[in-house]
Computed example of a mutant assay.
Amino acid sequence: MPREREAAETLSQARRLWLAAALAAVAYGVSLRDAPYPDQAAAKVLMPVLLLLTSRHHASTRERTWLCAALAASTMGDALLAMPQLSFSFIGGLSAFLIAHVAYCALLAPLAGQPRGWRRIALPLLWGAALLAYVGFLPHLGELKAPVAAYMLVLCAMASLAVSARLPHVTVALGGLAFVSSDAMIAIDRFIGTFPGSGYGIWATYAIAQLSLVDGIVLRRGN
């Protein structure tokens, strides 16, 4: 059937782009041993750009729109966070990823259902850990108390929707939780103090988050 062959080829192209994004993520992670270096921002955004191209092959117009919006905002956030010499690097990156998480919420909300099994346990643990983390960060936030609180609320909402997604696989849930882990390490590194291997840990969990979300929405559900 011509339509089935076209759908299969589209999915094959998406898989090749996703694999290229995964390889770009690994390459950037390896390059962190030489960071900071010239054009680091360009190297960092390669993964989300390739995932954006992957997502353009998704059949659902609604899901494709929100997923591309989330990845476009993530690309901007990655670029800004990779340029700490800019005075607005952190707050700009925070704002871009806030937009990304809002887009992910819009993407995932129609897919959410009644959580069962381990998901029912994960949700209260997620929100409890977020509350304890915010209390711990609070003395170090200064004027960022409100922005960080807003960001954490949206982040946890996104992760909750990912965990609650009615999908036959766990990759979307894994992506949401990995995003929380990555952002938690960024907050510790920024507000409490850097720790050994923080750059590698932040990037690894972030890459797993984005790759898992795109894999779960685009690749494992097909076209």
Score class of each variant (00 low, 15 high):
Ala7Met: 09
Leu11Ser: 07
Ser12Arg: 13
Arg16Leu: 11
Ala20Pro: 04
Ala21Asn: 02
Ala24Tyr: 03
Ala24Phe: 06
Val26Lys: 05
Val30Thr: 12
Asp34Met: 15
Asp34Thr: 15
Ala35Ser: 15
Ala35Val: 11
Tyr37Lys: 15
Asp39Ser: 07
Gln40Ala: 15
Leu50Pro: 01
Ala59Cys: 06
Ser60Met: 00
Arg64Glu: 02
Trp66Ala: 02
Ala70Ser: 09
Ala72Trp: 02
Ala79Gly: 07
Leu86Ala: 06
Leu86Val: 06
Ile91His: 11
Gly92Glu: 08
Gly92Met: 10
Phe97Val: 08
Ala100Arg: 04
Ala109Gln: 05
Pro110Thr: 00
Ala112Val: 03
Arg120Phe: 01
Ile121His: 07
Trp127Glu: 08
Gly128Ala: 07
Ala133Tyr: 12
Val135Pro: 09
Val135Asp: 07
Leu141Glu: 10
Pro147Phe: 08
Val148Leu: 14
Ala149Thr: 08
Ala150Trp: 13
Met152Ser: 15
Val154Met: 11
Ala157Trp: 05
Ser160Asn: 00
Ala162Lys: 00
Val163His: 00
Val163Ile: 10
Ser164Met: 01
Pro168Lys: 09
His169Phe: 05
Phe179Gln: 03
Ser182Asn: 12
Asp183Gln: 13
Ala184His: 11
Met185Leu: 14
Arg190Lys: 15
Ile192Gly: 09
Thr194Ala: 15
Pro196Phe: 10
Ser198Asn: 14
Ala204Ile: 11
Ala204Gly: 07
Thr205Asp: 05
Ile208Asp: 02
Ala209Cys: 14
Leu211Gly: 01
Leu213Ser: 01
Gly216Cys: 10
Val218Asp: 02
Val218Thr: 04
